[in-house]
Design a protein around this nucleic acid. Sequence first.
RNA 1: GCCUGGGUGGUGGAACUGGUAGACACGCAGGACUUAAAAUCCUGUGAGCCGAAACGCUCGUGCGGGUUCGAUUCCCGCCCCAGGUACCA
Length: 940
Amino acid sequence: MRTEYRFQEIEKQWQAFWEENKTFKSSINPNKPKYYVLDMFPYPSGAGLHVGHPLGYIASDIMSRYKRLKGYEVLHPMGFDSFGLPAEQYAIQTGQHPAITTEQNITRYIEQLKNIGFSFDWSREVRTSDPSYYKWTQWIFMQLFNSWYNQDSDKAESIDTLIAIFNEKGSVGVKVVCDDETIRISAEEWKSLSEDEKYEYLLNFRLAFLDDSVVNWCPALGTVLANDEVKDGVSERGGYPVEQKKMRQWSMRITAYADRLLRGLEEVDWVDSLKEQQRNWIGKSVGAEVDFDIFEPVANLQDKKIKVFTTRVDTIYGVSFMVLAPEHEWAMDLTTAAQKNAVEEYINWAKSRSELDRMSEVKQVSGVFTGSFVINPFNGEKVPIYLADYVLAGYGTGAVMGVPSGDQRDWNFATHFNLPIIPILDVQKDIEKQADNTKEGKYINSGMIDGLSYKEATQKLITWLEEKGIGNGKVQYRMRNAVFSRQRYWGEPVPVYFKPSASGKLLPYLIQESELPLELPKIDKYLPTETGEPPLGRAADAWKYQGQYDYEWSTMPGWAGSSWYWYRYMDAQNKDAFASKESIEYWQAVDLYIGGSEHATGHLLYSRFWNKFLKDLGYVKEEEFAKKLINQGMIQGRSNFVYRVKDSEKVTFVSHGLKDQYDVAALHVDVNIVDNDVLDVETFKSSRNDVPADAEFILEDGKYVCGWEVEKMSKSKFNVVNPDDLIAKYGADTLRVYEMFLGPLEQFKPWNTNSISGSHNFLKKVWRLFFDEVSQKCKVSDEAATPEELKVLHTAIRKVQDDLDRFSFNTVVSTLMICVNDLSSLKCSKKAVLKDLVLLLSPYAPHISEELWTVLGEQEGSLSYATFPEFNASYLVEDSFNYPISFNGKVKLTLSFPTDATPQAIEEAVLANEQVQKYLAGATPKKVIVVPKRIVNVVV
RNA sequence: GCCUGGGUGGUGGAACUGGUAGACACGCAGGACUUAAAAUCCUGUGAGCCGAAACGCUCGUGCGGGUUCGAUUCCCGCCCCAGGUACCA
């Protein structure tokens, strides 16, 4: 028996025990209720696990261990989202295949995770980059390609049912989700199409389809960049210019699910703020579409109308200009000869600006007049057409009507270009100073709606538009379809090849299901081809479908593999399906998902989308994949920065204190080569490919000082702190306790190692309840516990259980500390008490608990499936309560009264009290408020 | 900019439904044990004021208002920080 707390030995021993005995292997067990605890899917970065990752995993592990003690069959798996940009970036730098580095990184992650003592069922581990996994990601893509969204049944259906409808009545009036521009045809027209033409037409309706999307194109690198890779308008790698470019890309029609994604939020128990973020992201708005005729027909645009969507059609008489996105397809056609130069210049400038820049810069008005006009259909007035980059092409119709009196951005625009600001409601105030977006009052200057109220006016206008056929009421969503192509190597290949139609047009076809997985081909280097095609284009000579057709060269995005992984965990080895029917039946939905709020509008929406889709096709049962979701606040890092001088001939970096004298771009630098904000210049040079050996460093006081900021801890920000060092020094149990003790799980907090010793001391103190420190003798006795000891214990049992049930992980630690402090003061080493204490502690500090469990004489390893202590309220009964007595809300003294004393009796006793009399100093209280077992307030 | 959070001692945080603000830790100061150190234990620790003493007084939860017998908690306005903003995952 170990009599000293040698945590390193203890932890190694129990980790080995759990592994050998497969302690945490879960299986379909009809005799127990199931509980599925899902963690955020980690990306195995080269930096290894950082202290932020385990935060959520520790919490989920605590819940898993707690639920096992509560009698549940717990599914608690772990795996890796192992496709991604960083591995590819590393491959570009080193020429090493990303699969190799990914494998190494995963090995390291697993080692690190095992070090922390998680109760994962490792037999279910999955990796998205493994062909046996991405086979099913590709399979789901095929299902999406083969499906359309039927708005009548409100679900996805096989494309075959759509073909049947087309044969019967064509596409006119069919309630199918597709782009607005899609031309509708009759059954006759449909039938008259050739097979190829039919196939091409159907592409418009599939849930996976090809579409033009705007991307960050970097001509110098010959590739598309992630927003993350673009800093200040230039590429982070190399500092080359980036422009916005339209490209043909695979897209997912997530918009078909917009309303269900919205409605589904009502049935899940997720954090409200996260649901709110999703609601806002989906952005349902009810409004109207209005067609504006172009004044004096413009060449190329005969009979064309400019369509706008507005949520305030009632303001239409206040329209004094029209704004199109600079990339609007008619922008040049609408431009008159006189305006040509100005417009071209503006369009070129706008190309260099990211969407984020365009949305955030609200104070700086920019735009250009095209020289053309539209006609307001309601009053026949000529309205000038401008281009301005605050209108985004991918949003709605890419055109908005400007109503300066009611919209601040329009007001700014009108003021800048000297356009009229027309009041439209009699209650609008100060519109010469700012816009007033009120819906109150009666309309003025507004033709047919003069004198009406908001509701009446809106209704009347929409009716009129629909009668005239120049508009209609419409529900629009802010959410856009999801771009699904990446011009990258390290992702799932899209199981599609291109075959020319009779007319020579390349059409996409799926490969056969039996040909899955379509594996990534080997390529010579991980860069785009010389002609700017994605890296897979390098394999093209040898990599062809049936030896003749080119495959799709783009790969799937990072979110593909993570949009369904919780199902694979249910049955990770299955070769015939992504998961068996029985496993899906038993495990159903995730009971607890712990993940970061940074996934609110990305991963968590895509996952819900794919889940709904799989349900529509009957493969899964649940409309929502996670019943309960709690956020893990990020542990933030403290990042360091270096400052690269822009446009200098030689690569030059300037120290933080001098950076204001130059035009610089801030770049993250690894915190591990920065000491006290001073950069290790030599290591910096040798560790980065984009920093040549002759790079210049402008120093201050002989040092290169870095800037710093608190932001998220992430591989891309080079600010990672590693848990291994902490475990070596204090042990995994201490790390687990400390991470929980840091604060509420969901709160954001910068990492700070300083007070970890407190958690370590706590565990040592637990140990000392069992062993005498000096004599090293075991102190555990079989004596019966005293009422006082039982009160201490049961106070803790109640609070630990309550707090765990509401996921308040940090307060559990305090509770255990108080309990241990009290038991230490009482010199209690009684087995009857310590046994329950060990059970309470075990979810947090499982290694020391297993060890002490055996010290108590229990069977080795039986702790994980023991029974959580039962709370007994009778030990806590109090017969009196100490009432704080306050005067006007300020507490002055406390008085003790029996718990069953009536408020009247308390009031009398309080007023009769000598000290109270002293505070009253002869005054008569106006009122006395007695809140039983809380407080007494005397109002004077 | 927009959406979503957050702001409490020197530090991390507690106060669960509007009821004793600062639990529990860290740090710091003093003390015990020790030849010494480590470890451990004990005491004190929001700020200011009065005082020999305190069971004494005032202020105090980002800032400014409000509601209430009573506000860290609810409402209004502002400031600062963080996450997301559609190709980081």
